[in-house]
Simulated scan of single mutants.
Amino acid sequence: METIQNMFKQVHWANLRILETLQNGGVENKQANYLFSHILHAENVWFTRLVGADSSHLPIWEEVSLESCAEMVNQNNHNFTEFLSTLSNTELDQILTYKNSSGSQFQSSIRDILTHVALHGQYHRGQINQLLRAAELEPINVDYIMFSRSGS
Rank of each mutant, 00 (worst) to 15 (best):
V64R: 09
F80K: 14
L66W: 06
P59C: 05
V45F: 11
D143W: 07
N79T: 09
S56H: 12
T21H: 07
E82Q: 15
L114T: 13
R49E: 02
H57T: 15
S85P: 10
N79Y: 12
I4K: 12
V45W: 02
Y123F: 14
L66G: 03
W13M: 09
D54V: 03
Q94E: 14
G126I: 04
N77G: 07
Q31F: 11
W61A: 11
M7N: 15
D143N: 15
I128A: 07
A42M: 14
L119K: 03
Y34G: 10
K99D: 05
E136I: 00
L22N: 09
G26I: 03
S85H: 05
I95S: 01
M146Y: 05
L131G: 02
G52E: 03
L58A: 02
Q127M: 13
L114M: 04
L84Q: 14
Q75I: 09
L40R: 01
R111W: 10
E82W: 04
L50G: 01
F80R: 14
L84H: 14
L137K: 13
I39G: 08
H57R: 14
I128W: 03
L114F: 11
N89P: 13
V64G: 05
N15W: 09
Y123R: 02
L40V: 00
T3I: 12
I110A: 12
M7T: 10
L96K: 00
E20H: 08
E2Q: 13
N74K: 10
L84R: 14
S104V: 10
S65E: 09
L66C: 07
T86R: 08
E63M: 04
Y123E: 05
A42L: 10
H38P: 08
G151I: 09
Y123C: 01
C69T: 03
V64F: 08
N79I: 10
Y98F: 12
L58F: 03
L132R: 07
V11H: 15
V117H: 05
E2I: 12
Q75H: 10
F80H: 11
M72A: 06
A42D: 09
T86G: 08
A70E: 12
L137A: 08
F47P: 07
A53S: 15
R133M: 04
K99V: 10
L132F: 10
C69M: 01
T3K: 11
G103H: 11
E20C: 04
T115F: 03
L58N: 02
D143P: 07
A53E: 15
A14V: 02
V64A: 09
S55R: 01
S55Y: 04
T81V: 15
E62F: 03
E20Q: 14
S55F: 05
G126M: 06
A14I: 05
A135N: 15
I128L: 11
Q5Y: 05
S101N: 04
S85Y: 06
H41W: 12
G52L: 07
H41S: 13
